[in-house]
Amino acid sequence: AEKTGIVNVSSSLNVREGASTSSKVIGSLSGNTKVTIVGEEGAFYKIEYKGSHGYVAKEYIKDIKDE
């Protein structure tokens, strides 16, 4: 049951290796980017990222929809 969301930041949002603010940053997404959410862990969504997965803070994702 995948969902999509939109990155809701003015600059960019860090994509992390794990569901923690201390996890390594593996990339970033600019505002209004559409993401595919494959799961959630605590305050983070697990998303599809560059052929693999990454984690982003839930508070910066809006317009969550079921695909």
Rank of each mutant, 00 (worst) to 15 (best):
A1H: 15
A1T: 09
A1Q: 14
A1E: 13
A1W: 09
A1F: 12
A1D: 10
A1P: 11
E2D: 10
E2C: 11
E2L: 14
E2N: 13
E2G: 13
E2I: 12
K3P: 04
K3T: 09
K3A: 06
K3H: 08
K3R: 12
T4I: 15
T4K: 08
G5C: 04
G5L: 04
G5T: 04
G5P: 02
G5H: 04
I6E: 04
I6M: 07
I6A: 04
V7M: 03
V7D: 02
V7S: 04
V7Y: 01
V7C: 04
V7G: 03
N8F: 06
V9G: 13
V9I: 12
V9Q: 07
V9S: 09
S10A: 15
S10F: 07
S10C: 09
S10V: 12
S11F: 10
S11K: 14
S11P: 14
S11G: 15
S11H: 10
S12L: 11
S12T: 11
S12E: 14
L13H: 03
L13I: 12
L13T: 09
N14M: 15
N14Y: 14
N14T: 13
V15N: 00
V15T: 01
V15P: 00
V15Q: 00
R16L: 15
R16Q: 12
R16H: 15
E17S: 11
E17M: 12
E17N: 10
E17I: 13
E17A: 11
G18V: 09
G18N: 12
G18D: 09
A19N: 04
A19Q: 03
A19Y: 04
A19P: 10
A19T: 07
S20Q: 07
S20V: 05
S20T: 13
S20C: 06
T21Y: 12
T21M: 13
T21V: 09
T21W: 11
T21A: 13
S22Q: 11
S23N: 04
S23P: 01
S23M: 05
K24H: 08
K24A: 13
K24M: 10
K24S: 07
K24Y: 05
V25A: 05
V25N: 04
V25F: 06
V25Y: 04
V25E: 04
V25S: 06
I26M: 06
I26A: 02
I26N: 02
I26Q: 02
G27D: 02
G27C: 03
G27R: 02
S28H: 14
S28F: 13
S28W: 11
L29A: 02
L29R: 01
L29I: 11
L29M: 05
L29Q: 02
S30T: 11
S30E: 10
S30Y: 15
S30F: 11
S30Q: 12
G31P: 12
G31L: 13
G31C: 06
N32L: 11
N32G: 14
N32S: 08
N32H: 15
N32T: 06
N32E: 11
T33M: 11
K34R: 15
K34E: 07
K34Q: 12
K34N: 05
V35M: 02
V35D: 00
V35I: 10
V35K: 00
V35G: 00
T36S: 09
T36R: 14
T36K: 13
I37N: 00
V38T: 10
V38K: 05
V38F: 07
V38I: 12
V38Y: 07
G39E: 05
E40C: 06
E40P: 02
E41Q: 09
E41S: 09
E41K: 07
G42C: 05
G42K: 06
G42S: 06
A43F: 11
A43H: 11
A43R: 08
F44P: 00
F44Y: 11
F44D: 03
F44Q: 02
F44C: 04
Y45H: 03
Y45N: 01
Y45D: 01
Y45T: 01
K46F: 05
K46P: 00
K46Q: 08
I47K: 00
I47P: 00
E48N: 15
E48W: 12
E48V: 14
E48Q: 13
E48L: 15
Y49R: 01
K50F: 09
K50Y: 14
G51V: 04
G51D: 10
G51K: 09
G51A: 08
G51R: 07
S52Q: 13
S52D: 06
S52H: 14
S52K: 11
H53R: 05
H53S: 07
G54K: 02
G54D: 00
G54E: 00
Y55A: 00
Y55R: 00
V56D: 00
V56L: 04
V56S: 01
A57V: 14
A57C: 06
A57E: 15
K58A: 06
K58C: 04
K58I: 06
K58V: 05
E59A: 10
E59L: 14
E59V: 13
E59H: 09
E59T: 08
Y60V: 04
Y60Q: 07
Y60G: 10
Y60D: 08
Y60L: 07
Y60W: 09
I61A: 01
I61W: 02
I61C: 02
K62V: 14
K62I: 15
K62W: 09
K62M: 15
K62N: 14
D63N: 14
D63A: 11
D63Y: 14
D63F: 10
D63Q: 13
D63K: 10
D63W: 09
I64C: 06
I64G: 06
I64V: 15
I64Y: 09
I64N: 06
I64W: 09
I64K: 05
K65G: 08
K65T: 15
K65D: 10
D66R: 04
D66I: 12
D66E: 12
E67A: 13
E67I: 12
E67M: 09
E67H: 13
